[in-house]
Simulated assay, not measured.
Amino acid sequence: MKKQIRNQVAAFFLLLPAATVLLAVPGVSLAQQATPELRSMQVGADDGLSAGSQLDFTIEGTPRGQASVSVRGIPRTIVLKETSRGVYEGSYTIRRKDRVAENSPIRATLRLRNRTTAANYSFPAGIANASVPTAPPAPVAAAGLKIDRFTVAPVDKIEPGAELRFTLNGAPGGTAEFDIPGVINNVAMR
């Protein structure tokens, strides 16, 4: 009887470290949740930045979050809805009281559970001019080709050695390349 109790006590002490590790692992994984990521933002306007123009925002980021956009000169936060996995969209009609300019900063925020990330963006050049289209028309020779979206992931600071990540969504089966004028030309995309 004493030998049996001794064996059970020895087994308990041998298994105690393994049980401690198994109990501690879920707590560690919960404490190390990933921070949500904002990958890109697009903004378009149907009539420049004048009163009555509709601004359309699209953000790509971590799925199942809550996204919003703040623009200097607009006194309210624009809430975006997730329309497909990781793609958030929303729109806002500029009011007469709003003071939006082409150089007004845009702040995108993505919240996932108790974690929040934010990134600063700016309006595309020429968006304030209502006569400038937000996307150039497709060339006649490339009628079968289509570019749906071309984006660059935000970086904290553009400096030598900073990694830029470009994404192009378009017609399948094509080849793509891009230029950064004055820096590099004909960079092939996979």
Score class of each variant (00 low, 15 high):
142 A>L: 15
129 N>I: 09
125 A>T: 11
158 I>V: 15
174 G>R: 03
131 S>F: 05
9 V>H: 01
167 T>S: 09
174 G>C: 00
71 V>L: 00
83 T>L: 12
106 I>Q: 02
99 R>W: 05
65 G>Y: 08
99 R>I: 04
82 E>T: 09
147 I>C: 11
2 K>N: 11
70 S>K: 12
20 T>W: 03
90 G>E: 05
43 V>F: 05
119 A>Q: 12
186 N>Q: 08
97 K>C: 02
52 G>W: 03
148 D>M: 03
11 A>F: 09
42 Q>C: 00
79 V>F: 10
123 F>G: 13
89 E>S: 10
116 T>L: 14
10 A>F: 11
136 P>R: 14
41 M>D: 14
148 D>W: 06
72 R>G: 04
12 F>L: 15
149 R>F: 01
105 P>R: 07
115 R>I: 06
167 T>H: 05
81 K>R: 12
184 I>R: 02
115 R>T: 10
59 I>C: 00
128 A>H: 05
130 A>H: 15
167 T>V: 07
139 P>W: 10
50 S>K: 12
36 P>E: 05
150 F>T: 07
6 R>H: 05
25 V>Q: 01
182 G>E: 05
34 A>S: 09
171 A>T: 10
66 Q>H: 07
130 A>T: 14
110 L>I: 12
3 K>P: 03
52 G>E: 06
157 K>P: 04
18 A>F: 08
42 Q>A: 09
5 I>F: 04
148 D>C: 03
136 P>T: 11
163 E>C: 00
167 T>I: 08
